[in-house]
Design a protein around this nucleic acid. Structure first.
Length: 510
RNA sequence: GAGACGUUAGCUCAGCGGUAGAGCAACGCCCUUUUAAGGCGUGGGCCCUGGGUUCGAAUCCCAGACGUCUCACCA
């Protein structure tokens, strides 16, 4: 903020002085980097050619660049640490040597700040204390940091100071990435996980597709959509809340295996496990049944865990083993004592709910009650990977009826560590059944449930043209990353979570 | 939406009725193998905003903003 000369001003002055010395940090376009810092450190002895008899001048010169993260100036010499984001390596400078390279280089070096990007060339060596280091014979400023970066001090992986304010870490994620190794790890892990998911489906012959984000009716899930305006057609449109219906229309087009990884938007609350915009994976396979989908989920988790972490056993979960399979109604009975017979009509169901001490005011249908009981009594116990099978028809408007169990569908959800991680079913391919389900949903909607599924004639027309029996499944990518990395907050997984605007009161900025 | 907590220097924090503090960062000087480098010196604050209580408020009270956590909502 306001100092006698603000840091920003001082740095602008230094920038000008660097330019006056002929070393404009913003003028360079390209800088040769021979090795990453990690590679330098891991292969140090080989690269350094540490043989005693050879004079330093004759040793191989390495070109390296990175961000200055620490500096120790000692008169006519200096040490600094340089980070390429992944690792940091120490660099050593001497006045006389730099001046040999460029008479202004030492002067320029003294104008550098922590946060600047710089390039160097020189041999590798080890300091008295044995730290692998780079002996810089040249210096090329590559960018100037005009702000004081909140870089803490670091020693042996331990960190002092740095940026910890959660708000600031989210608002200025680049600072988080520079400062906190965990933030960087999270980003890398997410990226790797998504890549592995793609690789998994690609290898199995699924086609990756992309379907519209802007839709006339947002269907495929129960959620309130975001609204926006489509200027070219002067139409009110909605942002999608799921991928489902368009993907099934592709199945109707005789593309038998498709998947999509895409952002969906649900205009609802925020918590450490919910975010209005999130990334959804859905895949559909023609001629596949529920059991096939379960196997596929098992394979997917095992594959990703092994590829990313080298071991199917992560976060105290063994994804190498098959998942448990439990029937929903049986599980409720076992955990709550409420029998399936008590859950065959709404009155008895409410009475049973009361008996176990749950509120009944908000319940209007049997399916809702059943899912509430599942959530309350069963979910917390589903620590090991478990498929819960057989969901009520009222809450499953896109899932095939179970021919053997009236009122229930061929649907399962997967749970790990007490949390829902996937949702799958045998897709309805009977267009008459599907139309009836939509009509039921319209009934719910007219009763005030604004999350009930809208009618979708285009989708029905596709079904009426014939869809093979199909299995489909959805997984929230953000929650998947949370699960695999042990993150406690969805917002750590999202790079740039929505934040209310920062208030700037009426006084001068930094 | 409810409750609890937080907001003080660029960063991390202390101060909790009596002139606004520390470490790091910054600025100046010294120092050619340091590493949380060191030594000497110097600056830097609408103490989130607005009201109130008080002789006096960063500190107590009320309201608001923003954030964090928990709960609710989100099948």
């Amino acid at each position: 903020m306001s100092e006698d000369r603000s840091i920003h001003e001082i740095r602008l002055e230094k920038l000008q002085q660097l330019r006056d010395l002929g070393l404009d940090p913003y003028a360079t376009e390209k800088f040769q980097i021979d090795h990453s810092a990690k590679h330098l450190l891991e292969n140090f002895d080989t690269l350094a050619d540490l043989s005693e008899d050879k004079p330093t001048e004759e040793k191989p010169r390495i070109s390296f660049a990175g961000r200055l993260v620490s500096m120790r100036l000692m008169g006519k010499a200096a040490f600094a640490h340089l980070s390429d984001g992944e690792e940091r390596i120490q660099v050593y400078f001497r006045k006389n040597e730099l001046e040999e390279f460029n008479p202004n280089a030492w002067e320029a070096f003294k104008l550098l700040d922590i946060g600047d990007h710089v390039g160097f060339t020189g041999p590798l060596f080890k300091t008295r204390t044995g730290e692998p280091s780079l002996h810089a014979y040249s210096l090329t400023p590559l960018s100037k940091a005009l702000h004081n970066l909140p870089l803490g001090k670091e020693k042996d992986g331990e960190q002092w100071y740095g940026l910890t304010d959660v708000d600031q870490r989210y608002r200025h994620r680049h600072l988080d990435l520079i400062t906190n190794k965990e933030a960087r790890e999270m980003l890398l892990n997410r990226s790797r996980i998504v890549s592995e998911v793609r690789r998994f489906f690609d290898a199995r012959g699924y086609l990756e597709v992309e379907t519209p984000l802007l839709q006339l009716e947002a269907g495929g899930a129960a959620a309130r959509p975001f609204l926006t305006h489509y200027n070219a057609y002067d139409l009110e449109v909605k942002l999608r809340i799921s991928l489902e219906l368009y993907l099934k229309r592709i199945i109707c087009g005789d593309v038998p295996k498709v998947y999509e990884i895409g952002r969906v938007f649900r205009n609802e609350g925020v918590s450490n496990r919910h975010n209005p915009e999130f990334t959804l994976l859905e895949w559909y396979e023609a001629y596949a049944n529920l059991e096939d989908m379960m196997t596929c989920v098992e394979d997917l988790f095992r594959h990703v865990a092994e590829k990313i972490f080298g071991d199917p056993h992560i976060q105290n979960i063994d994804f190498g083993k098959p998942w448990h399979r439990v029937d929903l109604m049986t599980a409720i009975h076992e955990r709550s004592g409420i029998t399936p017979e008590e859950l065959t009509n709404i009155e008895d169901a409410k009475a049973a709910m009361k008996r176990v001490g749950l509120p009944t005011e908000k319940e209007s249908n049997l399916g809702g009650i059943i899912e509430k009981l599942l959530e309350h009594f069963v979910e917390p116990h589903l620590q090991e990977p478990t498929f819960v099978v057989g969901y009520p028809i009222e809450t499953s408007p896109l899932a095939k009826k179970d021919p053997d169990r009236p009122g229930f569908t061929r649907r399962f959800e997967g749970y790990v560590l007490g949390r829902e991680i996937c949702n799958a079913f045998s897709e309805i391919n009977d267009p008459i059944d599907q139309r009836e389900r939509f009509e039921q949903q319209l009934g719910e909607r007219s009763k005030g449930d604004d999350e009930a599924h809208p009618m979708d004639e285009q989708f029905l027309y596709a079904l009426e043209s014939g869809m093979p029996p199909t299995g489909g499944c959805g997984i929230g990518i953000d929650r998947l990353v949370m699960l695999l990395t042990g993150a406690e907050h969805l917002r750590e997984i999202l790079l740039f979570p929505m934040m209310r605007p920062e208030i700037h009161h009426d006084h001068p900025e930094d």
